[in-house]
Write a protein that binds this DNA or RNA. Structure first.
Length: 658
RNA sequence: GCGCCCGUAGCUCAGUCGGAUAGAGCGUCUGCCUUCUAAGCAGAGGGUCGGGGGUUCGAAUCCCUCCGGGCGCGCCA
């Protein structure tokens, strides 16, 4: 509700200033520091003062007294050196916020421009760790935000099933474990096959370190995987598919889902690279280097730096190696072109798996396409959720689009970057990892799949669920076991997703078990608990006063009484809560604009905190003044609906009890 | 060496397209459960916003510079 009023105020000020002074101005508004100063303020007169060469306070006075009524605004005051402070119509605001709260999100039109969000992208050779969870939580929450604001979104999880990491695990099964493809197939049915691969991958790394010449085994495996023939290729398919299914199950626990799994194997087999290569050559976006250290390679030069051609070629990014094979960036350029519908080729599709509620999860295929497959790709805008360490490579991919002349697509190709999740040395050592003396002194240590150093996602989820279950059991011993399990799961996910989302993307998360396992203070369970408290009131009201029209509390109280109860100064605390609860839309708009789910996470916490204060100060059920009681109920309902919406966008469920 | 990110309370972090007295959580200390569940609430204490310069009516926020830390810069992905 705050959002539309704020917008209306900015527009009214802009129009009035244009009319009265003949000046175009970018009117900014802000929330004043204290409620006595109103709900919306604008420092626009300071800027006008400069341009009109008059005192800001005088201009503010002039505007305040002559601008005339603005819908939703009760009055305007001037303050300080020349602020315009606006006071909202409290009753109207609350009524409108109530009418909007909990409503369905705007549905995207079928023909609306499509946004493609690529996230998760875990190498299918080992179990997911908490760094992958940050990626998935960010990507998934951003998808929810986009969909809520009416965008049409397609979620892709790219699977590098033919890369060196898979090859390494295949080397492990073949050379270390001496397994046949059939034996690997049998193993892959194990409940936590991804854990087995995690350990094997670390062992293979050591196996290479003991004798460097062994890396030729990797090259051989990679070759047979890329060419898709022989036992090693069979093993690779089996390992990658099985691990991908494990990742899907892990992400389901986190309430994260996907529409499509584009796989590198199809990029190879359907000749996406050949097509992209032809385009790049045709439009002169890449150059064949004839001299210097990159002789024989096709490279993409950075923007013209004025250096000699030879220097530019040496500093350029290699796209095709001198032996004719394509690098990862090259394949990524082909994939990015396909996402925008610019490649002139399409994948085939098959059903790969399904979500718990029965929706298909599609994967690309080189075989004939399932006729029921929807139209994938052809996006208008693309977000790639990839950690900030890959910023340079993402830049090369975008430069590729630009070099091909796709300036608009390059601009709508967004690297949604975030910092890594690292371990505190304390956490790493507590898990039994041996750190070097240098590492012990650092504030954090990077996780490493090769070293097997990291907190596995399912392990953390298990620990969280166990600890939530113990608490739930203590509080609700009488409830059926399955209900307690569900409750513990919702709270565990609430704790974890909130923990991963409360940091802004640019902050490195130093993972610490004590913090991640905390349920108090600025946490998901704190926010969920506020919802539960509100629901407890409604539930008790329904049993105590069966006839009370709690869903229509707003109809019991009339506007005059509402106005009186919300009026300053006595009504300020209630109004403050209404105002915050009514600011959900503005917060969502801000989170989408900043591409920052943490903005919404902070809001959810603030609202929960404000509600807890309200809950503590007012007894709703025992309130004797019926008009007051109705108002308190309205506020509790408003907060409950807004919190459920906010948490839902963060992928956090709101349990009935906890 | 070059590029990107970070430096705000004891710790972990918000606030950074300039705005009014710099916020939160955790931790510490002191209180509050016969109440709509204390996964809660109240209070206390805690700050050269890394240093220095500049722009501005106004700077944690913009510019310059220095210091500290991280990440990246491979014919790996």
């Amino acid at each position: 509700m705050y959002h539309p009023i704020d917008k209306r105020i900015r527009e009214a000020l802009r129009a009035y200033i244009l009319e009265k002074y003949g000046l175009e101005s970018a009117v900014v508004t802000e929330r004043p520091p204290r409620l006595e100063m109103g709900e919306v303020a604008s420092p626009v007169c300071f800027d006008l003062a400069k341009r009109l060469k008059r005192a800001p306070r005088q201009i503010a006075q002039e505007i305040a007294s002559s601008i005339g009524p603005i819908e939703g605004v009760a009055r305007i005051e001037i303050a300080g050196a020349g602020y315009l402070n606006l006071f909202l119509e409290r009753t109207q605001f609350l009524r409108q916020a109530m009418a909007l709260a909990g409503g369905e999100a705007a549905a995207a039109a079928d023909g609306a421009p499509k946004v493609i969000v690529e996230h998760t992208n875990i190498n299918p050779n080992k179990a997911a760790h908490i760094g992958h969870l940050r990626n998935a939580a960010l990507g998934d929450s951003f998808v929810r935000l986009l969909r809520y604001t009416g965008r049409r979104v397609e979620v892709q999880n790219y699977i590098d099933n033919t890369g060196v990491q898979v090859a390494d695990v295949v080397v492990g099964f073949h050379h270390l474990e001496k397994k046949t493809p059939a034996e690997v197939q049998a193993l892959s049915a194990a409940p936590r096959f991804d854990y087995l691969c995690w350990d094997l991958y670390a062992r293979v790394t050591q196996f290479y370190e003991e004798d460097k010449s062994r890396t030729s085994l990797r090259a051989d495996a990679l070759k047979s995987i890329e060419e898709n023939h022989g036992d090693l290729a069979k093993m690779a398919t089996c390992v990658a598919d099985a691990v991908v299914r494990r990742h899907l199950r892990t992400m389901e626990r986190m309430q994260v889902g996907y529409d499509l799994l584009p796989r590198e194997s199809e990029i190879l087999r359907l000749k996406f690279w050949e097509k992209a290569f032809a385009l790049l050559k045709e439009r002169n976006a890449i150059q064949l280097v004839s001299t210097g250290k990159n002789a024989g390679c096709w490279v993409m030069r950075a923007a013209d730096t004025g250096e000699s051609e030879e220097d530019q070629n040496a500093a350029a990014k290699i796209i095709v190696r001198s032996n004719g094979t394509v690098t990862y960036v090259g394949k990524d350029i082909a994939y990015q072109l396909w996402k925008f519908g610019l490649l002139g080729l399409d994948f085939h599709y098959r059903r790969f798996d399904q979500t718990p509620d029965g929706r298909p999860i599609w994967a690309t295929s080189a075989e004939e396409s399932d006729p029921d497959a929807p139209a994938f790709g052809r996006g208008w805008e693309v977000f790639n959720v990839i950690d900030s360490r890959q910023a340079y490579l993402q830049g090369v991919v975008v430069a590729g689009l630009r070099a091909l002349g796709y300036e608009d697509e390059a601009r709508r190709s967004i690297h949604f970057s975030y910092e890594m999740v690292a371990l505190s040395p304390r956490s790493a050592m507590a898990m039994g990892y041996v750190l070097s003396p240098e590492e012990e002194k650092r504030s954090y240590v990077e996780m490493s799949g090769r070293r097997g150093l990291g907190v596995k996602a399912d392990d953390l989820l298990d620990r969280l669920e166990t600890s939530c279950r113990a608490e739930v059991d203590a509080r609700h011993p009488a409830l059926p076991a399955n209900e307690r399990t569900g409750m513990a799961h919702a709270i565990a996910i609430g704790a974890l997703r909130y923990f991963l989302l409360k940091y802004t993307r640019s902050a490195v998360i130093t993972f610490d078990f004590a913090e991640a396992l905390s349920f108090e203070g600025e946490t998901g369970p704190y926010c969920q608990y506020a919802v539960v408290r509100a629901r407890n009131i409604f539930r008790k009201l329904a049993t105590q006063e069966a006839g009370y029209p709690s869903e229509k509390a707003g109809a019991i109280v009339d506007d005059a009484a509402l106005g009186k109860m919300l009026a300053a100064p006595a009504g300020d605390d209630l109004w403050d809560l209404a105002l915050l609860a009514g600011s959900l839309g503005a917060t969502i708009a801000g989170a989408v604009q900043a591409q920052e789910p943490a903005v919404l996470a902070k809001y959810a916490f603030q609202l929960a905190q404000a509600f807890n204060l309200f809950y503590h100060k007012h007894r709703i059920l025992s309130e004797e003044d019926l008009q007051k009681k109705a108002l308190l109920l309205m506020l509790a309902q408003l907060v409950e609906r807004q919190l459920v919406t906010a948490l839902g966008l963060l992928g956090i469920e709101s349990p009935e009890k906890m």
